[in-house]
């Protein structure tokens, strides 16, 4: 069954698939900023890159709240989103973001000015702050995937692949961007890690396509939208070619240079941005029910 035979009701009063339209591009940009910023901070922290940590923290603490508030219907009450961490991933995410920003700022301040106040680089306080900021950053890297997979309404999102995708993309963009910020020898040392992460990304995409295609009617419809409609050129062109294949080829075959490092990072960022937008656009609600006796499960 191809996509042409499916009924998309849109805003009409017909029985059919309806597009997810509640989370728009603002949310995609917010997710992008969170995963980019948290990934960059996390990788930079592991590698000891102060400039990377600051850049990551700035992206996550400005871009994410800005786009979330732009999306929100009542931004003045956004603090209320912290009230239900017992059941809502949005709530948990907000706590994780607050924890990440608070402990990361403290950690960076102690790193930069600690010695003036008697905090040595090997002190227990720095170690505790590093662990705490790292833990909260990891939570920010992954929680958006859980927020999506928690919902059974959008079948393609309702999968364990979503948190995995969040974590993987976060690490990939983190490593790709930190390579631009690090001196050449250190950046070159990360080539193998980035190649491995890109391989992981390719496997993750294959898993999503496979599980969606063989999953529920809604998930299959989303994959058909991704592969058979105008979204296909963005998926193959931006997500796969620019975001995975081109960087991988450059890493394997091109001689190491600053230009190549930048092109790899830009390609990966473009692929990631396209992926974040596409995954919201291909989300569909399944038809509530059908009385058509000729309708198969996949239509």
């Amino acid at each position: 069954m191809s996509i042409e035979n499916k009924v998309f009701s849109g805003d009409t009063l017909k029985v059919g698939y309806r597009f997810q339209r509640h989370w728009d591009n603002s949310m995609a940009y917010a997710f992008f900023c969170a995963e980019l910023g948290a990934g960059l901070y996390f990788v930079s922290m592991l590698l000891g890159s102060m400039i990377g940590m600051i850049a990551g923290l700035v992206v996550v603490s400005t871009g994410k709240p800005y786009f979330h508030l732009a999306h929100m219907g009542v931004p003045g009450k956004s603090w209320r989103a912290m009230l239900r961490p017992d059941r809502s991933w949005i709530s948990r995410g907000l706590w994780a973001l607050a924890g990440m920003v608070a402990f990361s700022v403290l950690y960076l301040l102690c790193l930069a000015f600690g010695e003036q106040f008697g905090i040595r680089p090997d002190s227990a306080l720095l170690w505790v702050l590093q662990i705490l900021s790292g833990a909260f950053t990891l939570a920010v890297m992954v929680y958006q995937g859980f927020a999506m997979s928690h919902s059974s309404a959008i079948a393609i999102w309702s999968s364990a692949i979503m948190p995995m995708a969040s974590l993987l993309y976060s690490l990939v963009v983190g490593v790709a961007v930190v390579r631009v910020l690090l001196p050449a020898p250190q950046a070159a040392a990360l080539t193998g890690s980035l190649e491995l992460l890109l391989l992981g990304l390719a496997v993750m995409h294959l898993m999503l396509l496979h599980s969606g295609w063989h999953g529920s009617p809604g998930a299959r419809t989303s994959i058909e939208l991704l592969l058979q409609t105008l979204y296909a050129k963005w998926f193959w062109g931006a997500v796969v070619a620019a975001g995975i294949v081109l960087p991988a080829l450059l890493l394997w075959f091109a001689p190491s240079s600053a230009a190549v490092t930048v092109i790899v990072a830009v390609g990966i960022l473009a692929g990631f941005m396209a992926w974040r937008i596409l995954i919201f656009k291909i989300g569909v609600y399944e038809p509530i029910m059908s009385m058509n006796p000729f309708r198969s499960a996949n239509t």
Binding site: R18, H22, M72, G73, R80, A81, H150, A153, G283, Y285
Partner: peptide, 20 residues
């Protein structure tokens, strides 16, 4: 109490939520 985040809208399999 509603902040208009629309998370309920994407969680409802019946697409019965509307933002005002």
């Amino acid at each position: 109490k509603c902040i208009g985040c629309n998370s309920c809208a994407v969680a409802c399999p019946y697409d019965q939520r509307t933002q005002m």
